[in-house]
C-alpha cells in the first residue's frame, strides 16, 4: 500500500471522524461498517476498523467515480448517492458536502431498516463529518 499524504488526512480529523463513525454505528444497529474515504480510495476513518474497510474504501471510491461518469454520460448533473441493494443488505455511498478533494462515506447495512431511514441517517452523518473538517 503506497504511503498516504497526511496533509489531506490530518490525524486529529481522522480521530474525530472515527469517533463520530463509532457513534453512528452504535446508534444504527443495522449498520455493519461505516467508512470515510478520500476520492482516490484511501480510508480516512472507519468503524469497525478492519482490513476489509481498506478494501471497501478503494471499491467505494471506484463506484463513486463510475456513478459520476455514468451520470455525466447520461446528461444528468452531479451524482449524489450510490445505492446497492443486495439480497441481505444495502450499501450506500454518499459524497461529503463541501470537501475538496471530495470525501465519501460508504455504509454497509443489513436490511432491517428502510432505505429511506438509512439515507436520512447517512446524510446527517455526512453533514456532521463535513463540519469536522478543518476550515
Amino acid at each position: 500500500m503506497p504511503s498516504t499524504n497526511v496533509a489531506f488526512r490530518p490525524a486529529e480529523f481522522a480521530q474525530a471522524a472515527g469517533q463520530h463513525l463509532e457513534a453512528f454505528v452504535a446508534a444504527n444497529s443495522d449498520v455493519a461498517y461505516a467508512v470515510l474515504t478520500t476520492s482516490d480510495g484511501f480510508e480516512v476513518a472507519a468503524h469497525p476498523k478492519k482490513p476489509l474497510t481498506q478494501k471497501l474504501a478503494a471499491m467505494s471510491s471506484s463506484l463513486q467515480a463510475l456513478s459520476e461518469a455514468i451520470s455525466r454520460e447520461a446528461g444528468l448533473s452531479n451524482a449524489r448517492n450510490l445505492v446497492i441493494e443486495a439480497e441481505s443488505g444495502t450499501i450506500v455511498v454518499l459524497g461529503l458536502p463541501g470537501t475538496a478533494p471530495r470525501m465519501s462515506l460508504a455504509i454497509v447495512s443489513g436490511n432491517s431498516e428502510t432505505l429511506g431511514h438509512l439515507l436520512w441517517a447517512a446524510r446527517n452523518c455526512c453533514a456532521a463529518l463535513a463540519a469536522l473538517r478543518p476550515g
Binding site: 503506497p2 504511503s3 498516504t4 499524504n5 489531506f8 488526512r9 478520500t38 476520492s39 482516490d40 484511501f42 471510491s61 471506484s62 467515480a65 463510475l66 459520476e68 461518469a69 454520460e73 475538496a100 478533494p101 471530495r102
Partner: peptide, 13 residues
C-alpha cells in the same frame, strides 16, 4: 473517453 480521474491525495507516491 470516459474518465474516472479524481484528485490524487498521495503526492508522496
Amino acid at each position: 473517453p470516459v474518465s474516472t480521474e479524481v484528485g490524487n491525495t498521495d503526492l508522496a507516491s
